[in-house]
């Protein structure tokens, strides 16, 4: 209570508290790893301290390896996720708008949906001629289902009175799809895109750890096998940053595409 009242008077105090919280975590990590603390169920014996991680990060930043790893990961996400966006939205529209398409497309998708994308890794290595393609496929599968399902949800839940109004105002079926159904489903589609982006990265990192030769997931796993423990944490941080960046991209895209959701000022 006392803190709350104090914080209201000094808004800077809240930021100070937040920064202190992060610093405390890093401080604990530094202390636990440099003292090789053993807590019974977890041990910090092999955990690199933050100071070492920073040194490794600087080394990686200066080496050309970083660009090679990050760019091959980004390319795979771009290809797999991109394909999932195109196919997912198209299928979602078809399923949400047409009963025939729904009967034709939905049953096999419903059968495959409960299988986690990561479980596809062995089979996809067998199916695809190159490990590159199989990793892109895993990324694609990971993003596909959330995008399809959210698109279907958005398209099928369009307010029927909006469609009726558009009909009465002279809208043709094609115009209604473009002017009413697409923007009406947009919030749901963007939610699907955001969830899909998360699963996409998750699947990619897993696939790279198993079958990659480049990529940030492979880098992290290689660091483990080569016992460069500080590099493990660097890899984790880079993966986190890439995920954060892509979700920021999607949020920004959402704001840009749906200005009516956050009308800033009246004029």
């Amino acid at each position: 209570m006392a803190f709350q009242r104090l914080a209201e008077r000094m808004p800077g105090l809240r930021w100070l508290t937040r920064a202190a919280s992060i610093l405390a975590c890093i401080g604990f990590w530094q202390l636990a790893s440099s003292l090789h603390v053993n807590l019974g169920i977890v041990t910090f014996r092999n955990v690199p301290p933050p100071t070492e991680v920073v040194q490794s990060a600087i080394v990686l930043l200066k080496s050309p390896k970083l660009l090679a790893h990050v760019s091959s990961s980004l390319w795979r996400v771009f290809a797999g996720y991109g394909a999932a966006v195109v196919i997912g939205i198209a299928f979602g529209f078809a399923i949400g708008r047409s009963r025939a398409a729904s009967d034709l497309l939905l049953p096999p998708l419903e059968l495959l949906r409960p299988i986690p994308a990561v479980a596809w890794i062995p089979l996809s290595i067998l199916i695809f001629p190159s490990s590159e393609l199989s990793m892109i496929f895993i990324t694609f599968i990971g993003a596909l289902f959330p995008i399809i399902l959210n698109t279907v949800h958005g398209v099928a839940n369009i307010d029927r009175r909006l469609v009726a109004s558009a009909h009465s105002l002279g809208g043709t079926p094609a115009a209604i799809l473009r002017e009413i159904v697409l923007p009406g489903a947009a919030p749901s589609i963007v939610t699907g895109l955001a969830i899909g982006m998360g699963t996409s990265w998750f699947c990619l990192v897993t696939a790279e750890m198993i079958s990659g030769q480049f990529g940030i997931g492979y880098y992290t796993w290689e660091a483990y096998t080569l016992q460069n423990y500080a590099d493990i944490v660097v890899g984790m941080l880079v993966i986190g940053l890439l995920g954060m960046g892509s979700s920021w991209l999607l949020t920004t895209l959402g704001h840009y595409l749906m200005p009516w959701r956050h009308p800033a000022v009246a004029r």
């Binding site: 009175r161 909006l162 009726a164 558009a166 009465s168 009413i180 009516w260």
Partner: peptide, 17 residues
């Protein structure tokens, strides 16, 4: 439906976007 016969509903049928 036809634009010749305009209909106004009770509420919330403006296109929000």
């Amino acid at each position: 439906p036809s634009p010749d016969r305009g209909i106004v509903f009770q509420q919330h049928t403006l296109f929000p976007w």
